[in-house]
Design a protein around this nucleic acid. Structure first.
Lengths: 320, 320
DNA sequence: CCCCTATATACTCAATTAGAGTATATTAGA
DNA sequence: TCTAATATACTCTAATTGAGTATATAGGGG
């Protein structure tokens, strides 16, 4: 066995909701500090499992009782790379994704919902390619890619230009909406995230002055959020998780808007209907909604039995 | 903040390889103890990241230098539920999946490759439905499902019969090869895994005598293995990870056999070829293999450029 | 009341993909 | 040369997908 260092496990929750057509994440905001996700240490004496610990922290900090919760990833360094934190103990952080339809109340003081795409503005393609990509990111990324890759600690099977092509759809490659985490980590590595500067990353030096490329977050919380978006965008396509973000009854177009908000791009309306109905994901409630401004829309509910029928069910669907 | 208990992070590796048509996992075997995966504690002083720590432990214990490594999941309890281990510290275990094509040497003493399906025999459907399902598991599972579900700590949206139907294809439902972990956890919960008895699970009491339902493993290592198989079976379909298990050049039938070994069922040969070739996953090396006993088979290699082209590439394919 | 606009919903059609099978090619060995 | 064994190529049908057009039903202005 090797020498023991004090280890602390941090539990972090990306609590996602879609409101007013925008995906939002619950953050705690204090003074002029960067935003943070709800978090707290795992204490096995109080919490039987990691997930129970997370639920308790979220309840204590926001008053929310979480429903759907899913573990994302465990990060061995939590920002401030290779340095123990203030208390002298090394922190390993476990990220979680939680989905809620609407916060019942405006929660506790100091926490509020904030647009996910404020933190990751390059991820929202619903109004076409985001300006920040063309004007800010791409020129700098090209400059970064042109330099030799010195980081031999990474098992880099791919060159920088190749990684850029894959992650950021350079050179005519397609944009893969699921690569949210890969994109953020590439930006961090290139020194283009404010967190990289805070952590004293070497790559930052090459930039004279970098504008704010998405709101930063404390610790590694923006990375947790990126992981959450990646997972959610992927899982959407083969599991009916999207309904965790919807009320009990909804119109098909409302469902589509929520999916689009998460995916960050538009879908073909008629084909989306066909897919959702043929897959047996929903069933009509019988009611209609006249709030739509045209022909009233039928109301649907999630058809729970679909879980018992197909091994894989979700709203897999390409752009439109 | 809450009272601090000493926490230790255990790193565990499910190192998978396919040899002689069987998926195998590297285990350490000591005396008459149950098998264990290579593992060791994470010590931030020595290891900059979790993954580096894992690689070091594996190197030390087996002499292997790992290539492809992927984090699976972090478990807050490591067998022996709700009890601190011998040293008085609570252990959180992080599971990893590693893939290797062949072990270069017979490794260190005490470690050897062991058939994955020896630990999870109900997962191999290549020779039809496994006997152990019909003769041992299904009768007991039905008995378990008939009892009321008292565990209200689990957010059980599903009843026991429903879970059985989904996980074990009861009542004519289809077998979902990806649900390896769900199946193992259900068996554990039902008291049908030897680990459940070791951990003093309540559910075990209902069984007078349960035969060995798959080889058990130390700690929660069989759960890590189940997680690894689940992930691998899923990932196969949208990422070209399978080539981590193959030598540089191979015939299409060899590729198919490896995929079948992992998936645990047979595929339609002609369609498999078509899929793999059309997806641009491979390119001919020019050579042929005459080891096949009939017409010589063309040799192929993994076409790396596919990574740059499509966002999602794998050998998605249903049975045959 | 009729027409216009806006939205929901239904239907069409071509292209592609998937599932299942048959046919042909190429080796080794009797 | 014939046969067995395997590799590889091709066929055919049924689904599925991508993209569009057509129809239905509301509210509001004239």
């Amino acid at each position: 066995m090797v020498s023991q260092a004090s280890i602390e496990i941090g539990l972090n929750a990306a609590i996602v909701s879609v409101r007013e057509g925008q995906p939002q994440v619950l953050v705690t905001r204090e003074g002029d500090q960067w935003d943070a996700l709800p978090y707290g240490p795992f204490t096995p004496i109080d919490h039987r499992t990691l997930e129970i610990g997370l639920r308790n922290w979220v309840r204590a900090q926001t008053g929310l009782e979480l429903g759907y919760v899913e573990q994302l990833y465990t990060f061995g360094d939590r920002g401030r790379h290779e340095q123990p934190d203030d208390t002298g103990s090394h922190i390993v952080s476990v990220g979680y994704l939680a989905l809620i339809t609407k916060d019942p109340l405006e929660s506790l003081e100091g926490t509020s919902f904030s647009h996910c795409y404020g933190f990751l503005p390059w991820e929202d393609w619903r109004n076409g390619k985001p300006d920040i990509l063309t004007s800010e990111l791409e020129p700098r990324l090209k400059r970064w890619a042109a330099q030799p890759d010195q980081d031999d600690s990474r098992d880099s099977v791919l060159t920088r230009p190749e990684r850029l092509r894959i992650c950021f759809a350079m050179e005519g490659a397609g944009w893969d909406e699921e690569k949210v985490l890969e994109r953020f980590e590439l930006l961090y590595e290139a020194g283009l995230a404010a967190e990289a500067k805070r952590d004293g990353r070497e790559a930052v030096k090459q930039w004279d002055d970098v504008p704010q490329l998405g709101r930063p977050m404390q610790f590694d919380h923006r990375r947790v959020l990126a992981t959450a978006m990646s997972r959610l965008r992927g899982k959407l396509k083969y599991r009916p998780v999207i309904f965790e973000l919807l009320p009990d009854s909804f119109t098909l177009f409302e469902l589509q808007k929520i999916v689009e908000a998460i995916l960050g791009h538009h879908l073909h309306k008629q084909n989306f209907r066909r897919l959702v109905e043929n897959a047996g994901l929903v069933e009509p409630t019988g009611g209609v909604s006249t709030q739509t401004g045209g022909r009233p829309a039928k109301l649907f509910r999630f058809r729970r039995d679909v879980l018992l029928e197909r091994p894989s069910t979700g709203v897999r669907m390409k752009g439109g």
